[in-house]
């Protein structure tokens, strides 16, 4: 079994209101050097065999919405548990 990682992130131009809340909370904890935080998703896919084109298809069809999100695929050989 191989693990492929897909990172889905909100486009930089969009306000991440959850990230802003987390950032505000960290600043209240004293981390004043913090200038912002953005929250994305990490999706781990278990596959029998890895075909980047097919994973890209999964991203385009369901995992990411191109209107608001970008994604990055991490191939199995570079995934370390």
């Amino acid at each position: 079994m191989l693990t492929v990682r897909v990172y889905v992130t909100l486009k930089p131009s969009l306000l991440d209101s959850a990230g802003r809340t987390v950032s505000g909370s960290l600043q209240k904890l004293g981390y004043t050097e913090l200038k912002g935080a953005r929250i994305g998703k990490l999706i781990e896919l278990e596959v029998d065999s890895y075909d980047e084109a097919r994973v890209r298809e999964m991203c385009d069809k369901l995992l990411a919405n191109p209107v608001i999100e970008d994604y990055r695929i991490e191939a199995p050989e570079t995934v370390t548990a």
Partner: peptide, 11 residues
């Protein structure tokens, strides 16, 4: 429809 819906600005 065009566009998308995200978390309310005020969370």
């Amino acid at each position: 429809l065009p566009g998308a819906l995200l978390l309310n600005a005020a969370q």
